Amino acid sequence: MPIPDYQTLMRPLLARLADGSVHALSDLLQELIAEFGLSPEEIKEKLPSGRQTVISNRVGWAKTYLDKAGLLQTPKRAHYQITDRGLKALEECPNEISNQYLRKFEEFQQFTSLHTENESRDHEQVGESDTTPDEQIAAAFQALNRSLADELLDAVRTASATFFEQVVVDLMLAMGYGGSRKEAGQATQATNDDGIDGIIKEDRLGLDTIYLQAKRWQNTVHRPEIDKFIGSLTRNRARKGVFITTSEFSPGAREAVQNLDMKVVLIDGRQLADLMIEHNLGVTRKETYEVKQLDGDYFSEES
């Protein structure tokens, strides 16, 4: 039989988690291969890039979509467990689980929707037939980056405080701040609240300095923490500050940095992950696709 698409794989994958135990993705892959009776040739068939097998890629995306809809959870890397919502989904969908069913969950809608800043009500769904190929490529690219950002943020949150310090320094250097690596490393120091504090050069010449504070937290950062940071900047007569957290900022915290005589930038966990992707920090290139168009100049016969 042909290799099943990722939507066809979603219910069988979830059903194999129905016992409530934690299962390794590698074991689930082998079980699904056996269930669908794939031939040796089908098992070895690879994507056009040649980097991954088709069945492994499709099982991976089935897992990702179930995860984004809250039907399964990840207790540890590459291991999965069904949730109460997942058990209910098996009851409600005796034959198949599709993207159409998953869209009933807000988390999945947020994952697959492309929102614009000015038109939050208008959105395009990944893979919808009424989108152009260019739009589908762009939507798929954003979906891949959102999934990667989630993985990055999980990795940063579970890393040690020392490694988190390295991430912050490496990111500032990648963005063009901090002077030399030696100077940037000396500018930060570990603190007892699971974060770092320091001063870093705005440029290699040190024409200005930036006060930096970073918190490897799970809980939301509220206004009192930002007020303390602003107070520290004021006492040091600083004009610029960056506050980084692996969690998120409350509305009050964001309001605190408005209309100040100084410039204070807040970077939450999502922005941190996006910046790491943008500056190739902690990520590696997986695929490269070239989208080409007609060269009108080449076909111009005007002398």
Rank of each mutant, 00 (worst) to 15 (best):
T83S: 05
R85H: 09
R85E: 10
G86L: 07
K88A: 12
A89H: 02
A89Q: 01
A89S: 03
E91F: 02
C93N: 13
E96I: 09
I97H: 03
S98K: 15
Y101W: 06
L102G: 00
L102E: 01
E106W: 00
E106G: 00
E107W: 00
Q109P: 01
T112I: 15
S113P: 01
L114H: 13
L114T: 11
L114M: 14
E119N: 15
E119I: 13
S120E: 15
H123Q: 13
Q125K: 14
Q125Y: 12
G127Y: 04
G127M: 05
E128V: 07
D130W: 15
T131S: 14
T131M: 06
E135T: 03
E135Q: 08
A140H: 12
Q142Y: 10
A143I: 13
A143V: 14
A143S: 13
L144T: 09
D150H: 11
E151S: 11
L153W: 00
R157Q: 03
A159I: 01
S160K: 08
T162Y: 11
F164T: 00
V167R: 05
V167Q: 08
V168L: 03
V168W: 01
V169S: 04
L171R: 00
M172H: 07
M172K: 01
L173D: 07
Y177I: 00
G178H: 11
R181I: 05
R181S: 07
R181G: 02
A190T: 04
G195E: 00
D197Y: 03
D197V: 04
I200H: 01
E202Q: 12
E202A: 10
D203W: 03
R204A: 13
R204Q: 14
R204G: 09
L205W: 07
G206N: 05
G206E: 02
